[in-house]
Design a binder for these strands. Structure first.
Lengths: 213, 213
DNA sequence: ATTTAATTTAACCATTTAGTTAATTATAAA
DNA sequence: TTTATAATTAACTAAATGGTTAAATTAAAT
């Protein structure tokens, strides 16, 4: 390769443009020409660097998931205590998704269209049940600090309360006639509300009310 | 129209096939030929009865939403007491979505691709903040029975805990290596767990632990 | 029975879009 | 400065796919 710099520069521009278009429109809604325009280059370069639409999409998909999954596990395996991890997890993913509104729909959609991909990255996923986070939950239950909830429901509750509101935010803002500032505050508030609700749902003793109003 | 029966029979077959294919693959992923095959008819009939792909899609979209939204409001406006409504709502939509796994992704996706549709059916949506259900919540708060939560967060929590797990079930079953019977039981359990968690999050006094194990 | 109109189909057309190619330009090596 | 290679482009091709049409079939009306 004569000019690795230029090569990777163009490839990078393509990846950024493809990321934007694929995440917004999905595999079938996206157009190669639109990606080329977004990158400000000739369409032939997409094939020069990535051969086909399917391979370009794969590259984007891999990139997104290779950042996403380790990010989750890193938080859940960390040294913090259990309740701190909940706050970090919720805050982190609220920030991440509110700033990339299209991402959760993309992820949900792609898994839905192509569930067999989950097999491929199976190992990264299956580390979760034996993660430190789940161990901490179980220890808390043993100690009588938490109710005997199952990890499956507990994780699902936490993730649902964090991610779904981002998916549903167009509907939410329409229903409650919320402006963008109100919407931003809504998600900011959830960083506090969700961890409290999660903890409250597993604690053996009642925790304070969580909205002052 | 000479034979209304035959007409509507074929149109019906088309609608059913289109529903199936569009909900599974989305507007862009769906193919007219696939819909025709699914209906067991010639592709030209799709255009004979519905003119274009876009119009056929509109018909499906309208049908789905015209069933969906009134169903929500009917529950929320009913005569039952507040806590009963929560149980009915959660149970109803868990059943509905577990039996139509593709539906929530379709809805989320379509709103995401085409948010301006929300304007069109705006009135049906905006009835929610003034629904009897929300009034009941506010009365409970006034009476000191419930914590002063906002309707926005309360509704979002309830809907998130109900719908998101259906979206995420492929990931869930992979992570926790769940077989189909276990998965079915998981969603059955949520009919009890979710209402308890919701109530627990707003009650001024602690409610019993909700998983016996 | 015959005629008329609606329905259905196979074959075709038009458009869109992914993908290719041959020529051009920029870059690095000799 | 010349040569070789990589990068880029405009123009093109091939395939997929939405949509049309003209002929055939079925059903209804007379």
């Amino acid at each position: 390769m004569v000019n690795a710099q230029k090569h990777s520069e163009t490839a990078q521009k393509i990846l950024e443009a493809a990321h934007k278009v694929f995440v917004k429109k999905g595999m079938y809604g996206a157009r190669m020409q639109e990606i080329a325009d977004e990158a400000g280059i000739n369409k032939a370069l997409l094939h020069y660097y990535f051969r086909s639409k399917a391979l370009l999409f794969d590259a984007i998909f891999q990139k997104i998931f290779s950042q996403f999954l380790p990010g989750i596990l890193q938080i859940l395996e960390g040294e913090q205590n259990f309740e701190e991890k909940i706050k970090v997890f919720v805050g982190h993913y609220l920030d991440q998704f509110v700033n990339n509104k299209y991402l959760p729909v993309f992820i949900v959609n792609e898994i839905h269209q192509n569930p067999q991909r989950l097999y491929e990255m199976g190992q990264a996923l299956r580390g979760l049940p034996s993660s430190r986070f789940i161990t901490q939950l179980k220890e808390g239950i043993e100690a009588g600090k938490y109710l005997p909830v199952t990890p499956e429901h507990f994780m699902m509750n936490m993730i649902s309360l964090t991610i779904f509101p981002v998916l549903a935010s167009p509907v939410l803002t329409e229903i409650f006639s919320m402006d963008s500032q109100t919407t931003r505050q809504f998600f900011e508030d959830r960083k506090k509300i969700v961890p409290e609700m999660i903890l409250n749902s597993i604690s053996t003793k009642k925790i304070k009310g969580h909205e002052a109003d």
